[in-house]
Amino acid sequence: MTTATLTGRRWLNPAYMYLAPSLLIIAVFIAEPILRSGWMSLHDWTVGEETHEWVGLGNYLELFADERFRNALTVTGVYTLVTVAGQVVAGLALAMWLRRTTWLSSLLRSAFFFPTVASFAVVGVVWKFLLDPQVGLVNAWLEKAGTTGPGWLTDTGLALVTVMGVGIWKGVGFSMIVLLAALQGVPDQLIEAAKLDGAGRWHQFRAVILPELRPALLFTTVIATVTSLQLFDLVYVMTGGGPLFHTESIVAYLYQRGFVEFRLGYASAIAWVLFVMILIVSMIQLRIARSHDGG
């Protein structure tokens, strides 16, 4: 008892000192801003105006009647569903194929992973010009093949599809390596035993490998979902939200209202809607993880 108290007292001061810088930064630049953001979202807070009038839930009511916001929700929702499904399924297929480490599979893994390292700004700029009708490689090759390429980023029906394609291409490597790491944890005997039982490839995959991968699949799906819900860089760089708002995401709209029009109260309300969406995704993740731990 005495020793515990003594040690406790001796450790007391340094521990707070070690935590102080981080806690100060978190308090000033994360914790307090979260609360202030909520407070601002209840006001008509526009830069340059003398007073910021209290509007209660006014911003939120306006938001849900706002066609452009609903469009941003749809764009973000479609982008998230398609890119997450695409990158997780493709990442899983690649992880299965490249499971064994040979020089060739290592080389291929690096190739598929490389886009993850590059910034959205760089890949956005490169893809924008790769798909350019005048100087782009894609349409030039299509022309050689005898067809005229579409306006990948200017066609209202196609622009979002194109952005989603780039999103999947960028995200596949991340899902692949998370799943590869998990696959390395699946004992070879398990797979071999399934083979001896005469389990078919598909059956073996579903009955033996998939259950082992469940936590990793959940992890990569949640991370990909949260990242996709925050879609901004790619559309800002490739389309600017166009053509005619067809690729305008929630964060792109937030940026427009907040940092172009300086309606900070309204933009804060958008941020809080995004926050709640991400919170719901995290809750669902926790629920799924728990229900499987229990069983």
Binding site: I30, A31, P33, R36, S37, L229, F259, A267, S268, A271
Partner: peptide, 21 residues
Amino acid sequence: LLILATLMVPFQVTLIPVFLT
């Protein structure tokens, strides 16, 4: 727990107040 809780909050929520700070 306080540090963990901040992990849930997307960066865009704090962006505007931090900009003002």
